[in-house]
Simulated assay, not measured.
Amino acid sequence: MYREKHFHWLILPTFVLLAAGTLYPIAYTGYLSLLEWNWGSTSKFVGLRNFYRIFAGVGFPKALFNTFYFAISAVVIETLLGLGLALAINRIRFGAGLIRTLMIMPLMVSGIAVALVWKVMLDPTLGIVNYLLSLVGIAGPAWLGTVPTAMPSIIMIDTWWQTAFTFIILSSALKSLPSEPFEAAKLEGATPFQTFRFVTLPMLKPVLITIVIFRTIDTMKVFDIIFGTTGGGPLRATESVQTLAYQTAFKSYKFGESATIAVVFSLIILLLCVVYLIIDSANGERT
């Protein structure tokens, strides 16, 4: 009885750490978004003027579009590619474990290291990619230096880096599926495509939704790959919300506007999470 009465004191340190490490930075960022403050100068309360500035300018809308473009493209490609690889390797009887181990190796590398390595590989004059293309008579473009190719190149780099995440989860999910539905489908004479469409895919649907949720949130926060390759260029073609917030704070020294960008973007992420939870809840009720 004594333990039940005083149990709440045991979780008090957790709430203190949560408040110090999460709630306080959130509240302070919200406070900064209402100020006009440059590093080292006097701050001035401006209310919602910073919010008007970021929406009235071209920087934030462009960065928000780029972020959604990158997130949607990367999530779709990585999910489909990871699913295809998982289905293919799931049919292999020998060497599947070694292939899975090799597949997850890119995940062990940090984002900034991936960005720097690919920046060298995609260099238009010294990079190995254009050199290999020249061997077959193809003149490679300046992958990260032109507007049409910069964002697709960033998406390609992220696909190489993060497809292993979707692959390893879907591969494990396929291994855990019950065998009875597949045996019944085989007895009914279902084709491989019909088995995938009406047996495998419905059972993988909860896992796919979870992957899409996690990868969408992760790709929306993209910073290291863009910062290490293009820095947001050329002509803001790859500038994301995160790189814009960094440039606004530490290059233009507009910390109030940078905090405003962070607040608005956090609200967008929160709205996306709520939408995903509603979709997931509706899917669970139907199931």
Rank of each mutant, 00 (worst) to 15 (best):
D218Y: 15
G231F: 03
A245C: 11
M220E: 08
F265D: 09
T260R: 12
I213P: 00
M220P: 06
A249M: 12
E239K: 09
R215P: 07
I213R: 10
A245R: 07
T238L: 03
A237D: 03
I226D: 02
L244K: 08
A259D: 13
T260E: 07
F250R: 05
F223V: 10
T229N: 02
F250Q: 05
I217W: 06
Y246P: 03
R215D: 05
S281V: 00
T230C: 08
V275P: 02
L272K: 02
E239W: 04
Y253K: 00
I269R: 11
K251H: 03
D218I: 04
D218C: 05
K254H: 12
I278F: 06
A259P: 10
S266K: 14
E257L: 15
V241Q: 14
I226W: 09
S258C: 10
G231A: 13
Y246W: 07
C273P: 03
E257G: 10
L271T: 09
V274C: 03
A262I: 13
N283K: 01
N283G: 00
Q242D: 12
L244I: 00
F223N: 09
R236V: 01
G228Q: 04
A237W: 01
S258R: 15
A249F: 04
F223A: 12
F227H: 14
I226G: 09
D280Q: 11
V274E: 02
